[in-house]
Every structure is written in C-alpha cells, then in structure tokens.
Amino acid sequence: MSIQHFRVALIPFFAAFCLPVFAHPETLVKVKDAEDQLGARVGYIELDLNSGKILESFRPEERFPMMSTFKVLLCGAVLSRVDAGQEQLGRRIHYSQNDLVEYSPVTEKHLTDGMTVRELCSAAITMSDNTAANLLLTTIGGPKELTAFLHNMGDHVTRLDRWEPELNEAIPNDERDTTMPAAMATTLRKLLTGELLTLASRQQLIDWMEADKVAGPLLRSALPAGWFIADKSGAGERGSRGIIAALGPDGKPSRIVVIYTTGSQATMDERNRQIAEIGASLIKHW
C-alpha cells in the first residue's frame, strides 16, 4: 500500500482519535458579512469528516447552483462504474471539434489522439474542462443518470439537468442544476469515506481534487503551510461562485467545507476574496 493510499485508508482512524471539535460562531459572522459585502445569498456548511456531524452552517438547506462543483460527483459516478466493471479508466475516447464547448483548455489539445477516461476526469476536476465533463456525462448516460446515481446514494436534493455550459445559467428560483450545502457536503463525505467506492477509487477521487489547479484564489489562499486540501470550485452566471473541499491540518483532511453564493453584482475577484476570507476565519478558529 502506498503512503497516499495509507493516508486515505486511515482518515477515519486518525479522526477518531482527534480531540473533540467545537464550532466557532466567528466564522458564521464572516459568512454573514460576506453576504453584506456581496449583496447576495451565501450558503455555508462545515462537517466533521469522521462523524458527519454538522459543526457550523448557514442557509444549509437553500438551493444554490452547483456550477462546476458537480464534476466531482460526476467522476465519482464514473469511478463507481469502474468498480462495477462497467468502465475502464484506460479506455480512450475520441471526439471532434464539434464536441468542444466553451472553456476546454485540455480537451482542445487532444482532438487528434483523444483522451482516456482517467485523463478526462483529471481534466474535468483539476482544470474544470467543460468538454471533458460533457464527454464523461455521455459515458454514464447524461445528466439524468448522474441525478439517479445521487438518488441511489441517498441524495434526493442534488440534481443535474443540463450539460456544460448551460448548467451554469443560475436563474433565480430555478431548481435545475442545483444542490443544497448540506446535501453536497453529505454526498461528498460519502464519496470520500464511505463504502460506495473502493479504496482505490476513493484515493483516485481525492487525488484529482488535491491536484486542483484553478481554485488557488479561494480556500487555498488562506491555508497555512502543512495543511491538506482537496477541492473543486465552480463559477456561473449572475454572480455565482462555489467551492467544495476536504481539508485539515497535519497533512490530512478532517472536515468537509461547502460554500456557495449566487445573485451578486460583485466582480469575480471580490467573490473570490470573500470566500478566501471565510476560509481564513475557519482556519483561525479551527
């Protein structure tokens, strides 16, 4: 067993022997301040990774656009098919120029040779490549099948209805392509620590998230040296922004954090800054 596999296998073990965790309302004060600064709703939840206990939450059962955070769930569904012998990570998928959609920095470079399922998941999570996500959605049967996968996990809230990039439209009061912070946090925890996926697939999923290259201005910008984070960000229309993450000190994750916002007129930089400040408060009061 590799060191990384050992780390993920012992996530519940280490967490069980940690000192009790206590909620700190100071972080919620910052979440509410972010709402004021952005002029928009902000949803927040913080779960203990081992027990699933909610440590703090704000608007945990209000719907927010998922945006690209759905790509972690998508690759979880792909990995479940791999575990069941219905898919192979090494299978190569070929596609054409007509398949390319807006923001496809990886797939646009491989029109000639195609990409493997493993490479597509890596591109979808680490670079948020939209064509990679659409190609992977095709392998599982489309958005409705991802929703069905989530329902089978016990998540009857999260739903995907459309493809990239239309799913980022974020129309107010439109339930399409949305989740709730509580539902997303619980589902992410199941994917990373539950028995739904094999140990190898859980490790692969967290490795992809740990290698995320496009979430630097968010929670990662607030992390002290030595902290662990595996995350996936999302951005959408109407001032929408979000991030889902597993993080913790001492090089291992111990909490799940989900943050979503929508309806702001603020710039992307300002949305990023507010999420980073929430992260800084979380870490300060850990």
Rank of each mutant, 00 (worst) to 15 (best):
T158I: 02
R59E: 03
S122W: 11
F6T: 07
G248M: 01
G216W: 08
L219Q: 04
L137I: 10
R59L: 03
M115W: 02
L191T: 06
A148R: 14
M127H: 08
A211V: 08
A211P: 04
Q204N: 14
L192R: 01
V72L: 05
S68G: 00
Q37G: 11
L160I: 13
G236I: 02
P172G: 10
E62R: 06
I275H: 01
H156E: 10
A266L: 15
G154V: 04
N50I: 10
E61F: 10
T126P: 02
L188N: 02
V21N: 06
L89E: 06
I45S: 06
P105T: 06
R91C: 04
F149V: 09
P105R: 05
T27N: 05
E210V: 14
T138Q: 15
E237K: 13
P253F: 09
L73S: 08
P25E: 12
A235Y: 02
K53S: 10
A266Q: 11
D33N: 15
H151W: 15
A183H: 12
R41T: 10
P143A: 07
Y95L: 07
F149Q: 07
S128R: 00
F70L: 05
R63I: 09
C75Y: 00
I93F: 06
A266H: 10
N272F: 02
E166F: 13
V257P: 00
S51E: 12
G141K: 07
S240H: 06
R59F: 03
M153H: 10
S57R: 11
G248E: 01
A40W: 06
H151S: 09
P105F: 05
T126Y: 04
K190N: 14
A211H: 14
E61H: 14
D161Y: 04
R7T: 15
E237L: 13
D207F: 10
L19Y: 15
K252E: 14
S221R: 12
E164M: 00
F14D: 00
E119L: 03
P224S: 06
I125V: 11
Y260F: 15
D48C: 07
G43A: 08
V78S: 03
V29R: 08
S96Q: 13
D161M: 05
K71N: 00
I3S: 14
H94A: 10
F13V: 11
T107C: 09
A222T: 14
Q265A: 15
F70A: 10
T193Y: 15
K213D: 02
G114V: 03
R41F: 08
R162N: 10
Q86N: 11
Y95Q: 02
A230Q: 02
A215Y: 04
N168M: 06
I229M: 08
W208M: 08
F228T: 07
E169Y: 12
T131Y: 05
Q265D: 12
A230K: 00
E35L: 02
M209R: 00
K232M: 00
G154S: 08
E164Y: 04
L73V: 13
G90V: 12
G39L: 11
R63S: 08
